[in-house]
């Protein structure tokens, strides 16, 4: 585009650079969905799975393996639920309808478009279709993929299980106690847990804590609690003269704090999106 004025050089340069256009390979681990008949049962299994682990398919490449549908598809009737869901889909996209009627060969093809739409409604986007006849796929459908190799992957059921277990993971007590005053220019970064200072925090010193900050002297420097996203963290100090305070990304400088609180014993906490400061006792 930049060479638009001089088209001849632009052309030559393109013809020269073309061969060296970088094509890079990158492999992603894809999840393969292999629907089975009856489709109704299969979808209800899928729904249950997604309910258990809602993020299972997010940011994942999902491949549709239709080999399980090919042989059963013509006799789809024996699964009334599956037939129902398929028929409902068929009513919507007009384009899919003639495929069913036209030729016996096409009639044998499973309704991949319907399946893809059904999955899309569940928030699952199919990036490619595997083990399908090329004739089954229209231009609007995901491309046919081949050459996939099986990869080690925990079965979705097993994957779904640990996720609800995660939150009650036992929290290790990980607090830091400083016996000496924190001098100007000194900085304490304690990403997990509380920081307790037995002395004062000088002007020009700073504490960053993942948890709460307790200062049993004067707080004259900077105190940032809940760093890394902990809105329940607090700052408590015996004498409140800070340069800056912050909890979970919300900050306040000395200028914007109530002068009546200065030199008082104070606690700071987060209420919704506001920093609250109140005198202790």
């Amino acid at each position: 585009m930049a060479l638009g004025n001089n088209s001849s050089t632009a052309v030559t340069s393109i013809s020269l650079t073309r061969p060296s256009l970088p094509l890079r390979g990158r492999s992603f681990r894809a999840l393969v969905l292999a629907p089975e008949t009856p489709l109704g049962d299969w979808f209800s299994h899928l729904d249950a799975l997604v309910q258990r682990s809602p993020t299972l398919f997010s940011e994942r490449a999902v491949i549709l393996d239709v080999s399980g549908l090919a042989k059963d598809s013509p006799r789809g009737d024996h699964s009334p639920l599956g037939g129902l869901s398929l028929r409902r889909d068929l009513a919507d996209p007009e384009a899919a309808e003639p495929a069913e009627d036209d030729t016996p060969a096409a009639a044998a093809a499973p309704d991949i478009a319907g399946l893809v739409d059904e999955l899309k409604q569940r928030g699952i986007r199919i990036v490619g279709v595997e083990k399908a006849e090329p004739a089954w796929l229209g231009p609007a459908l995901p491309p046919l993929l081949s050459g996939g190799r099986p990869a080690e992957m925990a079965p979705p059921e097993a994957k779904a299980a640990p996720e609800p277990v995660k939150p009650p993971e036992p929290r290790k007590p990980n607090s830091l106690v400083l016996e000496r005053p924190l001098r100007s220019g000194q900085s304490v970064y304690h990403p997990e847990g509380d920081v307790t200072v037995m002395g004062s925090v000088a002007s020009g010193a700073e504490i960053l804590a993942g948890g709460s900050i307790h200062v049993y002297g004067a707080l004259r420097g900077r105190a940032i609690a809940g760093a890394g996203g902990n809105p329940r963290a607090r700052i408590c100090c015996r004498k409140f003269e800070p340069e800056l305070i912050g909890i979970d990304g919300l900050f306040r400088t000395a200028d914007t704090t109530d002068p009546k609180l200065r030199k008082k014993a104070v606690q700071v906490w987060l209420e919704g999106e506001t920093l609250r400061i109140a005198v202790l006792d």
Binding site: R180, L182, R183, S184, G185, Q186, A202, S203, G204, A205
Partner: peptide
Amino acid sequence: EVSSVRDSDRIIGLLD
């Protein structure tokens, strides 16, 4: 004076 006192505090930190 405040700036001198703050700098001294910094120096005490370095002494430690």
